[in-house]
Amino acid sequence: MRLNCPLCGPRDRREFYYSGSEDLLNRPAADATVEAWNDMLHLRLNPAGVTRDLWYHETGCGSWLLVTRNTVTHEILATERVADRKGAA
């Protein structure tokens, strides 16, 4: 498995740390309901098909990547740097 780091190019899976679902990027507002916080912290889908999750380019450039991939076909459909996304600090 290879992930295409937008900065470093195509890299081997062993260079990356897997963090989990992109849900972690979508923090509810501070005054959101307990249910919204519970969903973000604990509820995860486990889709057979397209999923989006966070990978850290640990032994590369140190970027967090948002990876769109298919858990059935193992295709990597897209990779982007979290820092390059609109609204990123």
Partner: peptide, 17 residues
């Protein structure tokens, strides 16, 4: 190193394990 270093030419650099 999991890179194709036959194609790694002078002036190139990489962060890699």
């Amino acid at each position: 190193v999991p890179l194709d270093l036959h194609k790694f030419t002078p002036g190139q650099a990489a962060r890699a394990p």
